[in-house]
Simulated assay, not measured.
Amino acid sequence: MKWPSFKTWISIITAVLVAVIIWQAWPNVVDAWHSLSQVNLWIFALLLPVQLASYAATGESLFSFLRARGELRGMHPLTAMRMSLEFNFANHMLPSGGAAGIAYTSWKLSTLGIAASRGTIAQLAKFGVTFLSFSIMLAVAGIHLLISGGGSTSVLWAAAGIGVLALVGVTLGVWIFGRRRLLHRAAGVVLRVARWGMRVLRIRKTLEAVTLVRFVDGLHLEVREIIAQPRTLVTPFLWSFVVNACDAALFWIALASFGVYPDPALVFVAYGVATVASMIIVTPNGVGAYEVVMVATFVSGGLDPSITIAAIVLARAVLLLGTIVFGWGFYQHSVVTAKAPGLSRRGTVA
């Protein structure tokens, strides 16, 4: 009997994960279906272009950094969009708090000749500038709510806490990757844990310490080069504002389709609180925690609970469906073929 290949196992596991996500979210899908009669479909239809714009901007915040480092020059816009949809599917649908998505994206970039260390740092840089712009926008939103009186004490404290947490996270990340010895020690711990796990599972394969050390050394050197040339982060930083604005706008549109037009500042704070909660909860796409936290923040800000629940549940169901529909095919094609996008005669990505 011939066992399925590794690629087949990956496809099967991903299909099971998607099925589990749909099963977990199914009650929300049913509730969303029943609430459609209350929706202005013309407004609600705006979710589709804004979601696609968010995915495209997320991709550009990554690709623009790599272009600044001399990679992916000449990439066709359609190829960039396709890869953005694929990466967003991996980041949102695979579990482990985004780690699986980072690993997948690094592998995909390696098929384009980008070193694993550079591909990983590119993603971490994308997250870093996104958190920075997120903190700036959150500070503006919090100040607006404080002046206008449109936010409760709990909402304002949540905004302040999350903003500080994002800044501390970025600063700590830069400090860690700037310490070579610390990275080597961390690599040693990872290697020992991995070897122990392989012994427990009786996997007969040798893990080379040299390969892991080279990888973390590459991360360290990449961070040093970024610090020496901070201009490479300017364009990704600007794109990150678009990403945050589009993601928050999705929920403003959902509420507006029910005839509720909340303060955009409150929407951004609710989006921020829910996003942090989904990062802590390692369920794929933050199913469950995201909705509860976002609704609680909106209700604390004075919105009607019943309408808010219906709008958020409906939006999350549709966005979940969009993530699967737009990204699944490209992800599956990459896993099955392990093929990079074709190169044009000039050596650029087609």
Rank of each mutant, 00 (worst) to 15 (best):
D31W: 15
W33F: 15
S35H: 13
N40Y: 05
N40M: 03
L47C: 11
L48C: 11
V50M: 04
Q51H: 14
Q51M: 15
A53M: 03
S54V: 12
G59K: 03
L62W: 15
F63C: 00
F63T: 00
F63V: 02
F65M: 10
F65I: 02
R67D: 00
A68N: 07
G70H: 05
L72H: 00
G74P: 13
M75G: 02
S84Y: 02
F87Q: 13
N91T: 10
N91Y: 13
H92S: 09
M93Y: 08
L94T: 00
S96N: 14
S96D: 03
A99Q: 06
A103W: 08
Y104P: 01
W107R: 01
K108N: 12
L109D: 00
T111E: 07
I114V: 13
A116T: 07
R118C: 01
G119Y: 04
T120H: 03
A122S: 14
F131K: 15
L132G: 05
F134C: 06
F134A: 10
S135G: 07
M137H: 00
M137C: 04
L138N: 08
L138I: 01
V140H: 07
A141W: 05
G142K: 13
I143N: 13
L145T: 01
I147R: 14
S148K: 14
G149D: 10
S152G: 10
T153N: 07
T153A: 11
L156M: 11
L156K: 01
A158W: 09
G163E: 01
V164L: 12
L165P: 04
G169T: 08
V170P: 13
T171H: 07
T171S: 13
V174Y: 14
